[in-house]
Design a protein around this nucleic acid. Sequence first.
DNA 1: CGTCTGCTTGATTGACATCAAATGGTGTGG
DNA 2: CCACACCATTTGATGTCAATCAAGCAGACG
Lengths: 248, 248
Amino acid sequence: MNKVLNIEKLKVSCKQCSLKELCFPHGMDGDDITKLDNVVDAHSVKKNDYLYREGDVCRALYAVRSGCVKTTVQNAAGDSQIVGFHLPGELVGFDGFATDVHACSAQTLETASVCELPLDNLENLCANIPGLQKQMRRIMGIEVNNDHELLLLLGKMNADEKLATFLLNVSLRMKQRNWKEDEFNLSMSRQDIANYLGLAVETVSRLFAQFQDNGIIKVDKRHVEIINMAALREIISDCQGGTQQRNG
Amino acid sequence: MNKVLNIEKLKVSCKQCSLKELCFPHGMDGDDITKLDNVVDAHSVKKNDYLYREGDVCRALYAVRSGCVKTTVQNAAGDSQIVGFHLPGELVGFDGFATDVHACSAQTLETASVCELPLDNLENLCANIPGLQKQMRRIMGIEVNNDHELLLLLGKMNADEKLATFLLNVSLRMKQRNWKEDEFNLSMSRQDIANYLGLAVETVSRLFAQFQDNGIIKVDKRHVEIINMAALREIISDCQGGTQQRNG
DNA sequence: CGTCTGCTTGATTGACATCAAATGGTGTGG
DNA sequence: CCACACCATTTGATGTCAATCAAGCAGACG
């Protein structure tokens, strides 16, 4: 079905990219970004194509330029878990660093554009650009922390807290990109959201309806408008006598 | 209550450490390990003390030498999720790389000994030892992959699959340390196991009993003997018509 | 126009959490 | 050495949240 990408390369400039502060060049000066520009190529990737699959040799990191990419892990029994939705400016591919073979698959949710940073070039670059190693550690640290947040969500939250957390997280990332924080289009299906949050599709659907009935959001298919941000926050910090899970 | 550690330092030698191939020095040659030895100190840490807490400035990485360390994330509502149990040879502290402030707390489960690698020294070292950056990336990559495995567990497995996976994982790590893979003492309480697996203590307790009744394991408090390894594996790869969750 | 796919809504079930209480081991103080 | 309190663990009874089963609906596409 969906092939691994193999599209014409396109020269891009990190220096002029509006995402640079969210992305790899974060905090770097002009000269260093130029060195980075020399090794970065962009690709266009069709909807549902893979950047890489579990088992592929890890040759590069990928920065999302436009569109949205999901990363997925699989187990022996065949079921898979989405471990991340990656928006423009975010990096994908660290799952290949442990063994030089990818432990995840990365697939686009819509037609996307991604920048490729070949690893051997990156290694040279790290030697030439002071502070780039630290940058690398910082970005991987972010990945680790994101995963931990998701662990907390999957391990300790009930359904409505999960969806509220998800919506607030998307909202925050929209804001970081200078897009509207209270109105956006989700690039993922209900199925994908359900998988990511460890829920059934039906539950996600019902929760969207419920949130809308309570005047917290307005939903039309994938278009979401947050009416009452505070109410969303309240759902997840519901410390007092409400529904609570104890296993902590 | 439990204070952050502040114990006398103790000079150690990575070169002579039996854990070196599992730990940071993995694959390094003698000269490079000597450089490493110069910056590493060991501490003894009492049971239930913290290596660091969420919010602490990140100054060092820690390698477990003996004992067991758990790392925990917390949310606004106050509940916390254990994100890792760290055995001898494993590294702790990457959660501080994103912002230079720890996003996790790290606490010992029993009296432990840990090696401290101060970050500023580590940075210098990376400049002097070729391939050390890559080592760093490799180890962080392992951390990322471990987290992903746990995400899969929390998101897609039911209770018995979770415990079976946990036991097999511990068994594997025992084997890697040249200890018995089918007989060991767990350093964590039922409560900790339950928290880690996203279950209630009672459920964990019942599952231990059930596994024992089925002749898969023998349990006496924290002492576990695996009688039928294959049966454990079967539980988690139970593809056919049994109990199944669909949300994938 | 019919088929397909993604989404929604309703009814029912079940896995696991919660509540409650008993048990057993450990440490303390008399 | 015993009595007692305390904690972790186990075991049993009950409750509930979300999964599952089952239609129905709307937009996309050939």
